[in-house]
Amino acid sequence: MADRKLQVALYWGAACGGCDVAVLDTDAFILDLAAAADLRFWPIAVDGKYDDVEAMADGELDLAIFNGAVRNTENQHVAELLRRKAKLLVAFGSCAHLGGIPGLANAASRDEIFHRAYLANPSLEEGNVVLPVTEKKVASGTLEIPKLYRRVHKLDDVVPVDYYVAGCPPAPEQVKAVLKAVISGKLPARGSVVGCSERAVCDDCKRRKEEKKVKRFYRPWQVLQDPERCLLEQGIVCAGSVTRSGCGVRCPNSGMPCRGCYGPTAGVRDQGAKFISAIASIVDSRDPDEIASILGQIPDVMGYAYRFGLPAATIPGTARSL
């Protein structure tokens, strides 16, 4: 690839912009990237349009980086378009990888989301009954907005994906490493999760670990923690043991438990199921009633287990249909 510049597209679906800041946070490396690649399409930054992408030959792009989840008709359309035009399609960041935090919306229905946003909150115009619609006739013509799907989808629910970059957002050092690997052409096997390690967050966490036996779970606000000791051993629910490392252990190092943004460890299909079994295994009791009472101290198990990956869950109730 040394004889010509890489042809690259970056796009966001249902995203927050944090993945783009992660690219920006590679600092001066951005200038190296601009030297090595033509950024053909990057709606936040350069002048490519949907029509320009449509006009490209299939496979003309060397690389398309897609961040954000797939939430509406527009997101899916662009995902399909980039898949056709790019040799490599990368799901970048937790949302494209696993659904991300916006994926928590799958615990609610589309009607409930509309109801809360437009019909029932304390600051709405009194008596409002208006809801946004995908097509609206106005005096001068017709206005259209994309259709919101009933569910949030991860990228590989709608198109085949070649590589995954984990993290919310991916750590800048990892972003740099991944981009360098693409530039140099030294890529691992297709389907790999890149920019992370094969270890768990726990393996890289410097906190002291003794014995994982818990009689009482605490929510982070309920106790002043021992800053040197494993959070889970102190009864503070932490997903570090079931989460892939590569983030730099940034949450436990900030005094807060891991919530799993880097996704399941290698070989694990369902991070949330793994989380539930990990938590259950450390309860220090053999008495069924006491076990139930200890586990009852953990509210909202779903919200901990699938904080970043509800659309990737294998449990029922997360239908894949659009």
Binding site: P102, A105, A108, I113, G303
Partner: peptide
């Protein structure tokens, strides 16, 4: 053209978790 529904899906979450959810 977009709506992500944060107001609805933070319901049911422990309230102290919200500062690390709404960042997204």
């Amino acid at each position: 053209p977009e709506l992500r529904g944060f107001e609805r899906f933070v319901e049911g979450r422990p309230i102290e978790e919200l500062p690390r959810i709404v960042t997204r």
